[in-house]
């Protein structure tokens, strides 16, 4: 199955990946092969078969509504690239264009 550049760029954008131009050909080829492989599944007749979303067949795995503190703030922030001891800090997010 042929994947065009536009589709590749769209998928990359949705995953927030920057693709270098020299990577494009290889990725187009890889994606095409993956789709070919998945295409194989279409050969199976699935008429009347409900989609399988969960493997175990288990249902109603619920927890009682009890609060429990498992980590403190220091631990929560520990792995953040940037933080001030209270907040995670990320690059400025803009909101509105008026």
């Amino acid at each position: 199955m042929k994947v065009d550049k536009e589709t590749l760029q769209k998928v990359a954008h949705l995953a927030r990946l920057n693709i270098r131009p020299e990577e494009e050909d290889q990725l187009l080829k890889d994606m095409g092969e993956i789709l070919n492989w998945v295409e194989k599944l279409r050969e199976v007749n699935t008429k009347g078969v409900e989609p399988l979303t969960h493997m175990t067949g288990e249902v109603n795995v619920l927890r009682a509504d009890k609060a429990e503190a498992t980590i403190d703030r220091q631990q929560a922030l520990k792995n953040a690239p940037q933080q001030d001891g209270k907040f995670f800090i990320v690059p400025q997010v803009m909101k509105r264009n008026d």
């Binding site: 509504d65 609060a67 503190a69 498992t70």
Partner: peptide, 30 residues
């Protein structure tokens, strides 16, 4: 299981699940 109520202290009512750490499993509150 982290507490669901307001607090002045940022990032204190959190857990590895609500922080979205890999390998954690959510369990639905009845």
């Amino acid at each position: 299981a982290d507490a669901n109520h307001e607090t002045e202290e940022a990032n204190t009512h959190v857990s590895v699940i609500s922080l979205g750490h890999p390998g954690t499993l959510p369990v639905l509150n009845a």
